[in-house]
Amino acid sequence: MKRYSRELTVGGALVLLMISLAIFAPNFFDTQPMISRLASQMPALILALGVALVIITRQIDVSIGSQFGMCAVIAGTAAAAGVPMPLAMLCALVAGALMGAANGWLVAGLGLPSIVVTLATMVIWQEVLRLWQKGLLLSLPDGVQWFGMSQGTGQAMVIGSTLLILVLMAWAMKNLSSGRRIYATGSDAEAARLAGLAPKATTFWVFLLMGVLAGVGAALNLVQSPQIQPNSGEGLELKAIAAAVVGGIAITGGRGTLWGVLLGMMLLANVNPALTHFHQPPYWEKAIQGLVILLAVAADGIRIKKQKHLK
């Protein structure tokens, strides 16, 4: 139980939030708005799952928002040029993989600190996007929104595929050798090297996978509106990191579960809608997000200190 204390705490907080909403603002749970809201939160959740893997490896990636934006515009442009929908989505994934591989090579191959590398690539992709799109909205052809199906079906598909990815990833992290290698690398890279687990290769693939997931997130975002903004990914990196850290992914690497990330994302993503339902101004979102990151990190710090003290 102690191992999952963070998941339980966050889950408890989420339940409390929901109960108080149910009492004081019951129309929060109106079916259609709730499903729409849920669907719109799914792309960020996908990013959070990816960045959780990065953090478990004891790295960080702040370029994921920009990657997300790039992938969205690439897929959108392809779709607008008449490329069939599945192929356009594939473009997003490939673009994401390439951008992720670039980060992975710089971090794992050259041994550069991931925070500075991804800070730089964040700006690079953001600027490429700006030069390319000049801030203009990109209109999408008709067949794209909701995969050319009804809104309800489309939303169900977005939510369903995200949950499918979550379940698959959570299962793989728990049961596949590759998943355990990620935990091992983040827990102690040197021990991983001695055990022949190739921590550098693991780090590279995690960054690459992060890129692919940015592509997936972008694709799932793309289908939700008739046009896309080139800056659609701005600030998403912090949202994703906050959700991961709050959900119990330790910044010191090697700890945490993707189920915790789901809870963390649900809690954070609902803070703002909850604020509006409580008739509070929504401007506090970013500040709360920052505060929550600090609290989660401090809680981890205290845990580590206690553990050291015990020995």
Binding site: Y183, G186, A191, G254
Partner: peptide, 11 residues
């Protein structure tokens, strides 16, 4: 010891 502190003994 060169072990992974965050993982279980069995692992």
């Amino acid at each position: 010891p060169a072990l992974f502190p965050d993982l279980s003994v069995a692992e």
